Simulated scan of single mutants.
Amino acid sequence: MSKVKYVYDPEKLAYRKIKPKKGRKFGYFALFLVASALFGFLCFVVLLNTSYFETPKDRIQAREIENMKINYEILNKKIDQLNETMANLEDRDNNVYRAYFNSSPVDPEKRKGEGENVLSYKQLQGYNNSDLVINTTKRLDVIANQLVFQSKSLDEIITLAKGKEKLLAAIPAIQPVKNEQLKQMASGFGYRSDPFTKVRKFHKGMDFSARTGTPIFATGDGVVEKADASLSGYGNHIEIRHGYGYKTLYAHLSKYKTRPGQRVKRGDIIGYVGSTGRSEAPHLHYEVYQNGKVVNPLNFYYGSISAKEYVLISQIANQENQSLD
């Protein structure tokens, strides 16, 4: 009930009742309605942003957001596993494969590939879970870049491996004359007595004593560079350029079974034992060169003889006897 207001009338010396205007009552009522509407709207907004007032659609969206967070957590755990696998691959790439093929390890910074795709990440900003989505996307981009780089690196390793196969095939790794066809291993690498002057001088190869006509085998893959008697004292001889810094020479042949420019494989017959040139008896004089320097052929017979045979040959080769040329 509204309060009744009075005002003092000095003319009548009495209080009289103030009658409210009809328009004011309506204004008060309108103000009340507006205030009530605003209060109700504010309460509605507050309820919408609390968990006490959820529509079925809100509940479905909340469940989807929670499922998304769980899926992103699982995805990040899988990315952790991928990172461990990639680290293992990179370690083997640098420290096993490249070490084996004598190739320099790859700089870790290069493996990360290109920088972040800032433009694509900006499109993911402005959402409630933007940080989670952007961080996961960045990690996936890093893995993708590493996979691309590792694929290229493995292609390079395959190329190196193919080159290694050629290198292994080119190394002069067998005896030029078979053991069963030898009379004896007549003289080895090092200082020996000259058969003609009896003066001690350096013998640059190994002498294999065998019957005239005994087959001589190419000790590694290569190209015949010479098949003539142009070198003084060597008689009929063959030079094979194997590549990778290797060259072999076969001297005192009775005849050839190859020609200059011909490509040969390890084990191919290239000529026959003889006693041409400066030679005391039928034998093969065999030399091996590595990067332009003559080396001991004994170090290259691992492809055709057993350990026991190697020990026996090395004992004979190391005796300082008389050479056959």
Score class of each variant (00 low, 15 high):
Ser51Val: 11
Arg59Tyr: 01
Ile60Pro: 01
Gln61Val: 04
Ala62Thr: 14
Ala62Asp: 14
Ile65Trp: 12
Glu66Arg: 15
Glu66Trp: 14
Asn67His: 06
Met68Asp: 13
Met68Ala: 11
Tyr72Gly: 06
Lys77Ser: 04
Asn83Trp: 06
Met86Asn: 09
Leu89Glu: 04
Asp91Phe: 15
Arg92Cys: 08
Asn95Pro: 06
Tyr97Leu: 15
Arg98Phe: 06
Ala99Glu: 08
Ala99Thr: 04
Ala99Tyr: 06
Phe101Lys: 01
Asn102Gln: 13
Ser103Tyr: 13
Ser104Val: 08
Pro105Asp: 08
Val106Phe: 13
Val106Trp: 04
Asp107Ala: 00
Pro108Glu: 10
Lys110Asp: 04
Gly113Leu: 06
Val118Ser: 05
Ser120Asn: 07
Gln123Phe: 09
Gln123Ala: 09
Leu124Glu: 05
Leu124Tyr: 15
Asn128Ala: 04
Asn128Ser: 08
Asn129Asp: 11
Ser130Arg: 03
Asp131Tyr: 06
Asp131Ser: 10
Leu132Val: 09
Ile134Asn: 01
Thr136Arg: 13
Arg139Thr: 04
Asp141His: 04
Asp141Phe: 13
Ile143Phe: 13
Leu147Val: 06
Leu147Ser: 02
Gln150Trp: 07
Ser151Leu: 13
Lys152Leu: 14
Ser153Lys: 15
Ile157Lys: 12
Thr159Lys: 15
Thr159Val: 09
Leu160Glu: 00
Ala161Tyr: 15
Lys164Trp: 02
Leu167Ala: 11
Leu168Asp: 06
Ile171Asn: 10
Ala173Asp: 11
Ala173Tyr: 01
Ile174Lys: 03
Val177Thr: 14
Lys178Cys: 02
Asn179Val: 09
